[in-house]
Amino acid sequence: MPVVLRTERLTRLIGERKLVDEVSVEVRAGEVLAVVGPSGSGKSSFLRLLNRLDEPSSGTVFLQGTDYRQIPPSELRRRVGMVTQRAVLFPGSVYENLGFGPRQRGEQLAPEVARKLLDRVGLPGYLEHDVAHLSGGEAQRVSIARALANEPTVLLLDEPTSALDEASKSGVESLLKDIIAERELTCVMVTHDVAQAERMASSVLVLEQGRVQRNGTVQEVLHA
């Protein structure tokens, strides 16, 4: 499988502190890379560098072979979607939220496409619902559908189930797993839950103080 995402000595410094320290890693098409490590190990900082929400101090990222500094940031972020720990939805209806990404490119998301996305995330009939009335689990499902509406090449998941209650957690996790498999999405997922990494990922990157401790297949890293 071709390499979709490659980081090359990716580093992020804040003052003297290295949040991410020369991380080089490859993610192949359809692969799910789990980034694990203790709190403050630089997992989320690493993820924010991948869609350039933060600027690397040195090193770079290649998306399908192109240095991502050559890609306009808004286009890069359309191609590298993100689902955060807590779903942040914009005031309005579910449909308005799903159409946000396409609207930025001057496109209108067809209601039929929006309905299919909602069916897929387990929220049939929610198209006109006001997002203010959604539960945490429902809001996270809408944020997943909203990211998919942009048809990303890579999906970044920042602890996508950690803010949910136990009942919603397993539902959202299995939904993500199925969608990733169906769409053969390339994913980078930050998680503090090693068991979740084992269930969802094909490879694992262990970070500690921003540095790579281990990197390899789930078998190599978690069962060695």
Partner: peptide
């Protein structure tokens, strides 16, 4: 900050 960065992450321009 969450709303602004979510919009950026979905491909919005800073002004939007």
């Amino acid at each position: 900050v969450g709303e602004i960065e979510t919009a950026l992450a979905l491909g919005a321009k800073p002004n939007e």
